[in-house]
């Protein structure tokens, strides 16, 4: 899959910190003198885990722009095909797919469209079925299906 794009800056919304000093007092008299001591921390090493929230499966269609083809017009054609595919899916009471706008567009001499199933149930089967339709409807396109945790495609259709 393509390299992840830089994340936008996280905008914090918060109020100024309110600092309060409180002198704790025992509820009952203590049974002996108080001894001050250093704080001895007891803890295990921090375990760092990265959780990437990704769709269960996705389709990535790549269509090279050959012969001076206009990228934006080609993108619109493919978007129109996807709308028709969604209408076909709806006829079978299926939820269809959505275009992941953040990962789709005209990039370096080719049009890339990433599709994600609207319903996570059977997402991989949905992606494979739609990959076939798009491959047959888009001459010259390469269509790959990715599972969520996979960097490599689990299914690929190429001329």
């Amino acid at each position: 899959m393509s390299e992840p794009k830089p994340q936008p800056r996280l905008i914090h919304v918060r109020k100024p910190l309110v600092r309060v000093e409180m002198n704790m007092e025992p509820v009952e008299p203590l049974d002996g003198p108080v001894t001050r001591g250093p704080l001895i921390r007891v803890s295990r090493p921090l375990k760092r885990v990265t959780l990437t929230f990704a769709p269960a499966a996705s389709v990535r269609l790549t269509l090279p722009l050959v012969g001076g083809a206009d990228g934006e017009r080609t993108f619109e054609k493919l978007a129109a095909i996807i709308r028709i595919v969604n209408e076909m899916e709806a006829l079978w009471n299926r939820a269809g797919v959505w275009v992941d706008g953040a990962r789709s567009g005209v990039q370096g001499g080719e049009v890339v469209i990433v599709l994600v199933p609207n319903d996570t149930a059977d997402a991989l089967a949905t992606c494979k079925r739609i990959a076939h339709i798009l491959f047959n409807a888009s001459p010259g396109a390469t269509v790959k299906v990715f599972a969520a945790e996979s960097e490599a495609p689990v299914y690929e259709l190429a001329a």
Binding site: H12, K15, V34, G37, L39, I40
Partner: peptide
Amino acid sequence: DGRPAIIRFPVHTLQFPGLLERNYQVP
């Protein structure tokens, strides 16, 4: 800008120092 930014050294377990058995006042 005065907004809280970092929680330093979260504490869940500490230990009585030295040979101390009772009435430990922590920093």
